[in-house]
Structures are given as structure tokens and as C-alpha cells.
């Protein structure tokens, strides 16, 4: 049932999906443009680094420069006119959009008729997608909290003084990559999966695959401990009699700590290795306080955990890595 282009068109043309479709074009453009500017600046930086004399006299932007020109221009009209133009263009876009596409209105709300698929608004589809891989308390509460806190923490853990107010790739490679992975590689990709890939039953449908509400998916997800065959046999002998019936559970809970710790260490080493790659990054790294370093590691390790889990789930069909009676990860 592949090759159903009509299905794809239905998804793309759903009015509420228009923004994410637009983002598919806009984000690459802005990314490209940012890199375009970055590389231009980087060339200038390389040139200035090589020629300290020039660096002392150079105006240090890639924009046209003439010393006779005013360094500052009047806001009115030189900025205002562009803002006016932007407002008009946005209004035009909005009006054309509103005149050609109607805002969706479905049946009146009815708690007894479940929508299939029941999807959140497009901007939250990333979180809903995360629900597939994590328990709701992680996907719905912990992850969004970490995202917000993590975003807010960025300026405080980014100890790199360079790249302040101008585009540069060379001088802040790590920051750029971290953000690209987080924003585009994870968040937007998950939103796209939620929008385009998830169909009835929130099951996985490849593009152009027909959405079939009656589809049944044969799906066996295992926990990591099951793969390792943890049964708690050895624990029975150690535990006090009252806890023996729960031996398996306790064994699994204890076992789960191991892969978590292993992952944590491995990820930390990986991050450390990356941070130590260049001389400049080592300099920046050295400038960071302990608090900054620890915070950065925690956030990066956690962030990397998301793709790792998705990978484990989609490829190895592993549900939980660490299962305890109170929470499972």
C-alpha cells in the first residue's frame, strides 16, 4: 500500500499542517543563510588572524564600508521603512492564507467518539512523539522542563566570549552543532515524524503509505533486563524473607542502574573528547567554572539520551532500560 500519493497530499494539505510544511522550507533556508554569513565572517576572521596589522585597522564586518559613511543611521526612516514593509508583507501573507484556506472546524466535541489519530497541535507533536519512547512523566513533564531550563541555561554555560553578535561557525563550532542537533535534529524531526509519519493508532506509516484505521501492528517490545535474562535468582538468597517474592523486581531495578551508569560515563567521555579536540575549545573549557561544566554535562548527556533511546526502540525494540516499580526509563 505504498505509493499512495493521495494520502501524502491529504496530510500535507491539512490546514493545520501547513505551518510545519512551511517550516520544512523555511528552516533549511535560514540554516543555509546563517551558514552563508558564518562562512563569510570566518573567511574574514581567518584573514585578520593571519594579518594582525590589517586587524588593527579593519572595520571587521563583511558589509560594505566607507569611513565617510555614518556609522549609525536614523531609525526613522532607515529601519522603520523596513519594518513597515515587513508588516505589510506579513499582512499580505496572512490575508492570502486566510482567504484561501479555512480554519478547521470538525464535529462538535464528543467524549464518546475517539479521534483516530488523536494528535496534539503540530508544535507539540514532538512531545507526543516522545510519548512513544518514554513514559508520560518523562515525555510530558521532565523533557519539556529540561528543554526550557536547558535553553535558559545556554548563555550561562557558554563560556565562549567569541561570536557575540555576529555569525561565526569557526569560533563556536560546538555551540552551533549542539543547537542544530537539539532544535533541528531532534525537535523538528520529531515534529515531522508526528505530523507525517504517525497515522491511525499513532502507528508508523511511511510517507505515501495508506493510513488504515484497522491496521494491527505486531510489535514486541522488551526491556533490556529481559534481553539479559535477569530473573533475580541469585538475589533470593541475599534478601530478607519478606522481600523475596519481589526478588525479580528488585533485581531488575538494580540491574537497570548498570546500563544507565555505563551510558552516563560513555556519553561524558564522548563529550569530553569533543571538547578537547581543538586548542581554542580547550581554552574555553578551562575557563568554565565547575558548576558550568557539571550543568553542561548533565544537559548534554540527557539530550543525547533521547536519540539513543529512540534508536534502541526503533531498531532493537527495547522498551525500558531501567524498570523500577515507581518509574521506568
Amino acid at each position: 500500500m505504498f505509493g499512495d500519493w493521495h494520502q501524502l497530499w491529504v496530510i500535507i494539505s491539512t490546514p493545520d499542517n501547513i505551518p510545519i510544511v512551511a517550516m520544512l522550507g523555511l528552516v533549511p533556508f535560514f540554516t543555509w543563510y546563517a551558514f552563508h554569513n558564518m562562512l563569510a565572517n570566518d573567511r574574514l576572521i581567518a584573514q585578520l588572524e593571519a594579518d594582525p596589522q590589517l586587524a588593527r585597522t579593519h572595520h571587521r564586518t563583511t558589509y560594505p564600508y566607507n569611513s565617510r559613511w555614518e556609522r549609525e543611521l536614523h531609525t526613522n526612516p532607515f529601519l522603520m521603512r523596513k519594518e513597515l514593509l515587513a508588516a505589510i508583507i506579513i499582512t499580505i501573507i496572512l490575508m492570502v492564507w486566510a482567504l484561501t484556506l479555512n480554519a478547521p472546524l470538525e464535529e462538535p466535541a464528543n467524549a464518546s467518539v475517539t479521534m483516530n489519530p488523536a494528535k496534539a497541535p503540530w508544535y507539540f507533536l514532538g512531545l507526543q512523539e516522545m510519548l512513544e519512547y518514554f513514559d508520560p512523566w518523562i515525555a510530558g513533564v521532565i523533557v519539556p522542563t529540561l528543554i526550557i531550563v536547558g535553553l535558559m541555561a545556554i548563555p550561562f554555560i557558554d563560556a565562549n566570549p567569541l561570536g557575540n553578535g555576529y555569525y561565526t561557525y569557526h569560533q563556536r563550532r560546538h555551540a552551533v552543532w549542539t543547537f542544530l542537533i537539539g532544535f533541528e535534529g531532534l525537535w523538528l524531526v520529531l515534529v515531522c515524524i508526528g505530523t507525517f509519519i504517525r497515522g491511525p493508532g499513532f502507528m508508523w506509516y511511511w510517507p505515501t503509505q495508506t493510513w488504515d484505521p484497522d491496521r494491527v501492528e505486531f510489535n514486541v517490545n522488551r526491556n533490556l533486563d529481559q534481553i539479559f535474562g535477569i530473573n533475580g535468582n541469585w538475589l533470593v538468597h541475599i534478601l530478607p524473607a519478606s522481600l523475596r517474592p519481589e526478588a525479580v523486581i528488585i533485581a531488575r531495578a538494580l540491574f537497570g542502574i548498570i546500563p544507565m551508569v555505563v551510558y552516563g560515563i560513555a556519553a561524558a567521555l564522548f563529550i569530553h573528547w569533543i571538547c578537547m579536540r581543538t586548542e581554542y575549545s580547550r581554552t574555553v573549557y578551562r575557563k568554565m567554572s565547575i558548576l558550568q561544566t557539571v550543568t553542561m554535562y548533565i544537559f548534554l548527556i540527557t539530550m543525547l539520551f533521547v536519540p539513543v533511546t529512540i534508536f534502541l526502540r526503533l531498531v532493537f525494540r527495547i522498551k525500558y532500560i531501567w524498570e523500577t516499580p515507581w518509574f521506568s526509563i
Partner: peptide, 17 residues
């Protein structure tokens, strides 16, 4: 010769309007 100051946006704004 200042390209920003001498550039007129009148036409663009006119078209947009």
C-alpha cells in the same frame, strides 16, 4: 554614495501597499 541612505524604498512599499 551611501547605499543604505540613498536607496529609496518608495516603489517597494508602494507595490506592497
Amino acid at each position: 554614495d551611501d547605499p543604505i541612505k540613498t536607496r529609496s524604498y518608495a516603489n517597494v512599499i508602494l507595490i506592497a501597499i
